[in-house]
Simulated scan of single mutants.
Amino acid sequence: MNNLHTLQLLDTHAGGDVSRIVTGGIDQLPGATVREQMEYLRDDADGLRRLLLEEPYGIPEMSVDLLVPATNPEAVAGYIIMEVMGYPIYSGSNTLCTATAVLETGIVPKQEGIQRFKLEAPAGLVQIEASVRNGVVESVTCEGLPSYIDTHRDTIEVPGIGPVTYSIAYSGGFYALVDAEELGFKLVREEELALAACAHKIVEAIQAQRGFSHYTLGDVGPLPFLHFMGPEEQVANGYVRSRSTTYVHPGVICRSTTGTGTSARLALMHYEGRLKVGDKLETVSLRNTGFIGTFTGTHKEGAYQVAENTITGRSYVLAESKIVINCDDPMVACGELHRLLSDRHAKI
């Protein structure tokens, strides 16, 4: 087997969060669904994620989205999300970037106006609505996962911080939601390191005290995320804006507000009786980028009132490239990658 291999990439970002889309160079993965293919990578072939997120190819703040053939005939393509914390079944910013990538690469030919199609995430089918003008993808709206509040305004003693009031939402992962002002933050970029350190302490304290279980998925692992909520500003009737930021991993604050973080905020506002169908929440990041979440409806799942929602944002293409994987390089751990790598462009 050759020691040199190439991967085809389209680097994008949404709200500042870089998503590296792998468009070719990976063989067909085993698994009857995109979810099973994700589980194969997670359990048996994690080297691809580590390769593209660690030195010398990547950094922990990035995400990777592997395009795969859809297994559901309603979808135009599937995608597997890889982040420093593992394999989330859904991500808003990664979905915005992947939807843009399938348009930019011609998997879905661009058409002027509104285009609708479906992608297959590990979480299932995702409806996409893209707005194209003069050949430019100006915005993408994607379904957020049904989101709900597990815990409302509980309090925990956090070493080095003191008592912290938090809520827990599920929106594709479990989120601790905390009030930024109560913790002394204005949510400006200069606070980024302090925000990451504070969030880590809170998440560790909650993890040590309790776990969380999804009403259908069951145990999805320890609480990974924390979302800082800034004050809400009423921009118009049914339209609220709020500075926000999301912690995802020790030392890592997302550049964007995150789509799932925005969905979690909508779930909290719905739980507190502050939303009607069609209301919007614009979350604004430390870098002054934003996503718009729209509350689209509700339904009951067991004991939970679930908020249905969409996330709207824009993704930008940064680069189209090939990277060379040299298995003779001591910084590159090929190992299990030999099962995945091909030297032909994958057809979606």
Rank of each mutant, 00 (worst) to 15 (best):
C97A: 07
G124V: 12
G172R: 14
I348P: 07
L29C: 12
S315L: 11
R116Q: 12
Y57W: 14
V284R: 08
I81A: 00
A169P: 07
A208N: 08
L341A: 02
A267Q: 04
Y57L: 14
N309W: 13
V248S: 07
E190Y: 02
L41P: 08
G211C: 08
D44E: 13
L41N: 08
Q209G: 05
V158K: 05
L268T: 03
V102F: 05
L281R: 08
I311A: 03
E204T: 09
G230Q: 06
D44A: 10
Y148E: 02
L341W: 05
L51A: 03
M331V: 14
D343P: 02
Y215K: 02
I323A: 06
R339N: 09
V284Q: 08
S315I: 12
V126E: 00
T141R: 10
C254V: 11
T23C: 13
A303M: 13
P159D: 10
G16C: 09
P73L: 10
I323C: 09
D328A: 11
Y148N: 00
D329N: 09
V76L: 12
H338L: 10
I253E: 00
T71G: 06
E233Y: 01
F212W: 11
C198T: 15
F185P: 04
I26K: 01
D329V: 06
R210L: 08
I206V: 15
A267F: 14
R274D: 00
L286W: 02
E233N: 03
L195H: 09
E54S: 12
K322S: 14
L268F: 12
T245H: 06
K280G: 08
